[in-house]
Design a protein around this nucleic acid. Structure first.
Lengths: 232, 232
DNA sequence: AGCCGCCGCCGTCCGCGGTCCGAGGCCACG
DNA sequence: CGTGGCCTCGGACCGCGGACGGCGGCGGCT
């Protein structure tokens, strides 16, 4: 019992900007949204550039944004709006027929708070608007599934590849981690209070066990296994 | 209008397994779910081990799983069930009071299809069960937001770091990508139809421009900038 | 006990890698 | 036309890095 279905507004009404190149779609949404007590449509836009314009003028709480639009597509417009200072509170809800992976990821990257497919029901749309206006996020179930898949893919890949490091001793893994940072043998020795010669030995052994020829290949393995990660 | 709110079942009813250590919670959910025509509770479990047991016996469509449970926690039980062969169709919906990042990510990693917080309304719960049963996924809005944040964080980090490669020429970036794969100078030459000497030159220049001492450090940079990614 | 195998530690030899230099060809720009 | 990048290639120097062998210690196995 919170952001749920059909309560009257606790505070002021949610101000919505409609951005879609088809006037029919806009008017359809408008009547649907204006039926709700806690939602009002405050502006409309027929293309991406206009959407940015209206967003800056009207400062809506939520922008209902189509992707396929002239001048500037919905993703570019989203990027513009989220980058624009003074419009921090403006949340963007993408609404489209096509759910290409690239579109979705780019939209999220651009700063969208939600992503719905046009085959969603009115109830979903209204719920999504309220969720997004509250500062949270909501995706269509199909997209949620794929985002999760995308997310877990990396981690499982790393986890499973980590078995390759099972053949190494603790010390060797330790050294490998430092090699993965790009450290030289001397630096590794200094870091671990070892003679550079000893550092070399560990590196050598690690290379032999992992089938690496170079220390460069060791770095590759270190990253692939997730022993070190791109963002330190 | 699709997987929406309160329609009668198109096919057979959704078979649900309740896994929660508190009997009161289970009975509460049971009456709530059994009120729906298209949902039936077919089994219950009071701990993780029992959940795995019942899941194998009853083969439900959806498991409503609490995290905090004796014997085996909900995440471990989720991992067990999804790993178990013959139970491919069983979707798991996590339901918990705590939404720690670690919990969420581990649960998704373990194969959960959904994640709801216990302060959600009955409508959300029912909707989530239907979505998950349909093979899609659904997360609580707060969690969706954080997952998106997690997802975009990496990409923006890589994107912004990519500016470091702006000083390189096209050829040098090309060579750098191969260095990032762990290739030697000869191999790079062979790959690009170059003399090994030329490969060296490019590698050298790249190192100078990027402030790398080693080719190993070049590999590090290649990964950090996202020029090459752990999963090729 | 004796043995074996793994691990951590270290020193020596050699080749690849990295640096510096020079040179030629190509294209874009002024 | 000259100039400055960029790409290409070669040669020479030198040091780090990788290969190899050896040594002491520790734990398991017989």
């Amino acid at each position: 019992m919170n952001t749920a279905s059909a309560e009257p507004p606790a505070t002021a009404a949610i101000r919505v900007l409609l951005a879609d190149d088809e006037g029919l779609v806009r008017s359809g949404f408008k009547v649907l949204l204006d039926l709700e007590d806690d939602i009002t449509v405050v502006a409309e836009a027929a293309d991406g550039a206009e959407a940015v314009e209206r967003a800056r003028a009207a400062r809506p709480d939520v922008v209902l944004m189509d992707i396929r639009m002239p001048k500037l597509d919905g993703i570019q417009a989203t990027a513009e709006i989220t980058r624009m200072r003074g419009l921090e509170g403006v949340r963007i809800l993408i609404l489209t027929t096509y759910d290409t992976d690239a579109h979705v990821f780019e939209a999220l990257q651009a700063g969208a708070s939600g992503f719905l497919l046009k085959d969603a029901g009115p109830a979903e749309l209204l719920h999504a608007i309220r969720v997004v206006a509250a500062g949270e996020a909501l995706l269509a179930p199909r997209i949620t599934r794929r985002l999760i898949g995308q997310f877990t893919a990396r981690r499982t890949a790393a986890k499973s590849a980590q078995d390759r490091l099972a053949v190494l001793t603790e010390r060797e893994r330790e050294v490998l981690a430092l090699v993965g940072q790009g450290l030289s043998n001397q630096e590794i020795g200094a870091e671990l209070f070892l003679s550079p010669a000893t550092a070399r030995t560990h590196v050598s052994r690690a290379m032999a066990k992992l089938g690496a020829r170079d220390r460069a290949q060791l770095v590759v393995i270190a990253y692939r296994t997730g022993l070190v990660s791109p963002d330190e």
